[in-house]
Every structure is written in structure tokens, then in C-alpha cells.
Computed example of a mutant assay.
Amino acid sequence: MTTPKFAQIKQFIVDKIRSGLWQENQRVPSENELSTQFSVSRMTARRALSELTESGILTRSQGLGTFVASFKSQSSLLEIRNIADEVKERNGNYTCSVLILESINAVAPIAIALGVEVESVVYRSVLVHNENDSPIQLEERFVNPALASGYLQQDFSATTPHEYLSSVAPLTQARHTVEAIMPNNEMCQWLNLYNEEPCLQVIRRTWSVNGIVSFARLVSPGSKYRLGGHLTFKK
């Protein structure tokens, strides 16, 4: 089966990053440059860049171009909190539905995000967090087995991935990307969204002292969830 052109472009970019030829924050070829190089339409090149951006591999800056994302921590207004604690603080009843808990072979974007080899085994979980029996967040998480070997043996209906990972690989750094998205059909089904509505998506990578622990995508209906932060400025 012939590999789609957009997938070829994605693999080309990933290979350049993995080899070290393209460094963090380095500008990558534009849609026009890629469409010329691979003899494809700009739409095809745009799809490749967009999917790598959504995965956190690239970052786009309006008017400047597309760059290799920084895989180090960055400051954030977001506090890393356990969603179960958030619900309980609102006097809500927290429950969790475990949809998927499996080991998979890492495709290139996931391998880069976790700092492991392509096709190496990683853990994947898909959960729905509920407040008062209503879904408020879909969590898809990829975990480095070397830093959390017992991940697949956990009962995530009783403890959250955040709680478990914090106990075996305490968080030292994190990187967030936050954006508004329209959910696909699968997301709508998992979140019980009968009317299409914008969702808040957080892409999060976390580190411990020993390396990258997990790469997660958190999707919440815009009508049910919001993010907040508090800043204290030194005098």
C-alpha cells in the first residue's frame, strides 16, 4: 500500500528532528516549500504541518512560520492538578470510566513526545472523567513504560493516572498547549455530546527527574469546563 503524501511529509519532518538535523525552535519548510519539494498541493502540506502541530511536535507562529517545538519545560499559568480533587472541591461526585488500557507500538509523533524509539512499546489509556455522572473530560494518555512499569495494572476507576504517576515518577516539569477544537465523532460519543460544540483541548507532556513520563491529550466540553490560574507577583 502506498503511503499517503501527507504521511510521507510528516515522516520526513520527524526524521529530521530525530536525527538532530533540525533543532528545537528551528524553522521548518513552509507549506509552499514542502508542496514544491514533494510535488503535492498546499492543502496536503498544510495537513502534515497541522497534524504535527496538534501532536506538539511543531509550533506555529502567525506571520513567522512553523518551528520545531521545544521539548523542554515552559512556564505556565496552569497548575497540574488532579481532576478528582477538583470535582470533590466543588462537592461533586467524581467517577471515571476506563475505555482503553493497552500497550502499543509508538508511531513517530508519540515516540518523539516521549523520547523513545519509534515502534518501541508504550502504554496508552483512554478515560472519561465524570462529575455527577456527567462526562467533563476525555483523557488520552501515552506513558513511558521505563518510568511507570505498573501502569497497565492500575485500577483507574479507583485512582487517576495523575495520582499513580505522581507516586512512581514525581512531576518535576511540564509543558502545555491549550486550544479550542471541534470534537470528532468519537470524542462526541465518549463525551455524550449530542449537539456539536467547541471543546477545550490541553496537550500536556510531563517530566520526572529521569525523563519524560507521559504525553496526554485532555478534551473537555466548553460548556462544562474551564481553566483558571492565580499569579502572585513579587514586590
Rank of each mutant, 00 (worst) to 15 (best):
V202E: 07
S223C: 05
R47N: 07
I212Q: 04
L227W: 00
A69F: 09
Q153W: 05
I181D: 08
A108I: 09
R141K: 05
R226L: 11
A148L: 10
A174W: 08
C96L: 13
S166F: 02
I17M: 01
C188Q: 14
E31A: 09
L191A: 08
T95Y: 03
F67E: 11
V122H: 00
S125V: 01
A48D: 08
G229W: 02
L138G: 02
L52F: 08
L99D: 03
V107F: 15
E79T: 03
L138I: 01
K224F: 11
Q11E: 14
A174G: 14
S50L: 12
V118T: 04
I203F: 01
F156S: 12
I17G: 01
W190D: 06
L52N: 10
V122W: 04
S73C: 05
I83G: 10
P183I: 09
L218Q: 15
E51A: 04
N32V: 13
I100Q: 08
V68E: 01
L147W: 11
G115A: 09
N210S: 05
L101C: 03
C199F: 02
K88G: 04
A169W: 01
L200Y: 03
L77G: 12
L101Y: 10
S97K: 05
S73W: 13
F142T: 13
G20D: 03
A106T: 10
S70I: 07
R90Q: 10
R205P: 01
M1W: 02
S55K: 03
W190T: 10
S157N: 12
V118H: 13
T59S: 12
A106K: 11
L227C: 12
E89P: 06
T172Y: 13
I212A: 05
E139Q: 07
S61K: 15
E197Q: 14
L191T: 04
S19F: 02
E139D: 03
T53F: 04
R141D: 00
R175Y: 06
A84N: 15
F215T: 05
E31L: 14
P161E: 00
I80W: 13
V87E: 08
G228D: 04
R205V: 09
R175H: 04
F71P: 11
L200N: 07
E140Y: 12
V28P: 07
H129A: 06
S50W: 15
F215H: 14
F12N: 01
I13C: 00
Q26I: 10
K5I: 06
S76L: 01
V168F: 01
D155Y: 03
P29S: 11
L64Q: 12
T159I: 14
S220E: 02
M187T: 12
V98R: 10
S125C: 08
V121L: 06
H162T: 15
Y151K: 14
R205W: 04
I104V: 15
S134N: 15
V14P: 00
H129M: 06
T53I: 03
A84K: 15
K5V: 12
L99Q: 13
R141W: 04
T160V: 11
I181H: 01
E197M: 07
G228P: 01
L227E: 11
L77M: 14
S30W: 09
E139Y: 00
K10F: 08
R124M: 02
S35P: 10
R226P: 10
G150H: 05
V219A: 05
E131N: 02
